[in-house]
Design a protein around this nucleic acid. Structure first.
Length: 572
DNA sequence: GCCGTTTTCGGCCCGACTGTTTTCAGTCG
């Protein structure tokens, strides 16, 4: 797959052209191409071979030619020309707050700034302030930007950010002045990682609300505190902004601050074509305000139904809304259980009973205990006898406990030769079999996984791509073949909800759905305090446009058991 | 560079804030 490489090249191209003062719309075109290619579910080479490059929105003849050149020769002459003489690492500086293309060009031309260290130096030795258009305050802002950039070079995972934000909202709700409060931004869209935290409120005295916000115990530094906006740094270096808006603008402001940027731009283009104008203050025809109190107003004025925040990435949701073909996204309350949890028999921390009680408290109808198999020594994998014993323990608990059904399962290793780590007779005794690759990430993973799916006992493939958000790309894997075979063998693919996995990802979920594969959400929890994370899996599913019927976990206990007991070819 | 039920040329989202200015460019979300 050359998708990632191409996305990166076009992204760099955009930066370079911006730096060189090219037409900003051209810059934007490259940036858009970079984003669209990066989010493409299919291999761009396959699309090219089917003559379909120009069908990708945002790809026209110019960029299509460049893609073709890259795919056939491995090079892109236009990019090489553009990049010539531009120091490596220069573009990175534009990610620093207050550093835009104009400032960068100025510093490069006049002071020879080419790197992070150069930039640091000129902010400190006073040489920057002398330049035209730059003063002491601007230099201060850049200094602060450098600090922030160095401190938090990345984004934080959704699974970390979500509890933080919900904690803040719960604390602020105790303030009587607040009428409405909601998270916005990428967190509300439930992206897998979050840049900074945005919270929107309406209420009485703005200054007082902001003050309450800046005085929260989690706050380590206050960046700004006015009447309508407060900005702070939290423990862990994340920035959080709180805005107070007037109630009649809450909907439009929420829509606006939720984004994504690409979604909003697309929406406004459509509005403009129809003689309307959308801003954070509402939707307008000429001077007349047509709505903005509720978020739905923005969409309904355009004749669209409300679009769930998780879908707002400009990945076709606006077109679907226009055509009235938006999917009915799976709802959190439609998820009946968790299909991948570890107990203390392998590397988990809790007993099966503790897990079951917590699951019941969370409203689950069922929970699948899937401990590691025997050769997974690093994870306390259990022997065949221990697994038999675990099955008996679960039978006992099921007789004793009401309101929750414990499913006996395993997370069985797919070994180097594609065989499974337990014999079929044993797997056959379990309610559910989840199979996973845990070693040999570069060794024939596709073939091994397909072999596992062809085993009649295997119900689910765990974390199918093996990626770790913070640190690992994933197995060398032919995702298309896996999904096709999963659909054919009626083997479900997992949405692993562990915060650093979220695997399958949103885009892969979309693709799995298109290819007719079923999905299964599992928290992979090793502790009862991780069971809440099923919400993250549901979020990924919703971002992947999944509906109830795409998910095993949306089946009732009765339906699920019937499904699992049916021979795989008859599960269609 | 992309795109088209007002266009194959001439547009391309919107508004606020900041810091530097003397009417506005740059940056951001």
């Amino acid at each position: 797959m050359k998708n990632r490489e191409l996305a990166e090249i076009f992204g760099k191209m955009a930066g370079i052209l911006e730096f060189k003062g090219e037409n900003p719309f051209k810059v934007n075109a490259y940036r858009k191409a970079s984003r669209v290619i990066g989010e493409l579910g299919d291999d761009i080479e396959a699309i090219y071979n089917q003559n379909g490059l120009m069908n990708i929105p945002g790809i026209g003849s110019g960029i299509a030619k460049k893609i073709e050149e890259y795919l056939t020769t491995g090079r892109m002459s236009k990019y090489e020309q553009a990049a010539q003489g531009v120091p490596e690492g220069l573009m990175e500086l534009m990610a620093i707050q207050s550093m835009g293309s104009k400032t960068l060009t100025l510093l490069y031309d006049r002071l020879g700034v080419e790197s992070f260290d150069d930039l640091k130096r000129v902010t400190e030795d006073g040489s920057m302030e002398i330049l035209p258009g730059l003063g002491a305050k601007k230099v201060e802002n850049i200094k602060r930007g450098i600090k922030l950039y160095a401190a938090s070079r990345g984004r934080i995972p959704l699974g970390i950010a979500l509890p933080i934000v919900e904690g803040i909202i719960a604390q602020l709700k105790q303030t009587k002045q607040i009428f409405q409060i909601s998270a916005a931004g990428s967190l509300r869209r439930m992206r897998e990682n979050i840049g900074d935290i945005d919270i929107l409120t309406t209420g009485g005295e703005g200054g007082e609300i902001i003050q309450k916000f800046t005085q929260l115990p989690q706050v380590t530094q206050v960046l700004a505190a006015g009447d309508t906006k407060g900005s702070v740094i939290l423990e862990g270096k994340t920035q959080a902004d709180l805005r107070v808006v007037s109630p009649d603008c809450f909907g439009s402001a929420l829509q606006y601050f939720t984004g994504s940027k690409a979604h909003n731009i697309h929406l406004r283009e459509i509005a403009k074509n129809r003689g309307l104008k959308i801003s954070e203050y509402g939707v307008f025809r000429d001077e007349k305000r047509l709505g903005g109190e509720r978020e739905e107003d923005i969409y309904s004025v355009l004749g669209l139904s409300w679009i769930s925040p998780e879908m707002r990435e400009d990945r076709g949701e606006i077109e679907a809304a226009i055509a009235s073909t938006l999917p009915e996204l799976v709802k959190p309350e439609e998820i009946r259980g968790d299909l991948h949890v570890h107990s203390q028999h392998s590397d988990g921390a809790a007993t099966i009973e503790q897990i079951a009680l917590k699951a019941r408290e969370l409203g689950h109808e069922y929970i699948a205990i899937c401990d590691h198999s025997q050769s997974a020594r690093y994870a306390g994998g259990i022997s065949e006898d221990e697994l038999l014993e675990e099955i008996r323990e679960i039978e006992g608990l099921n007789q004793r406990l009401d309101g929750i059904r414990i499913l006996s399962g395993t997370e069985v290793d797919i070994r180097a030769d594609g065989s499974l780590d337990y014999p079929d007779e044993l797997l056959n005794k379990l309610d559910i079999v989840v199979a996973a690759v845990h070693s040999g990430f570069k060794k024939n993973v596709t073939v091994r996984m397909i072999k596992a799916m062809e085993n009649p006992n295997v119900d689910v493939i765990a974390h199918p791509t093996g990626r770790l958000i913070s640190s690992r790309e994933g197995y060398e894997l032919d995702v298309d073949r896996i999904m096709a075979r999963a659909a054919e063998t009626h083997t479900a693919l997992e949405i692993n909800s562990y915060y650093d996995r979220l695997d399958l990802s949103d885009i892969n979920c979309m693709k799995a759905k298109e290819m007719g594969a079923k999905l299964s959400i599992g928290t992979d929890a090793h502790h009862v305090d991780q069971l809440w994370a099923i919400r993250l899996g549901v979020a990924v599913a919703r971002r992947g446009w999944l509906e109830k019927q795409n998910l095993l976990n949306a089946l009732s206990l009765q339906q699920l058991l019937e499904f699992l007991q049916r021979p795989k070819p008859k599960r269609g």
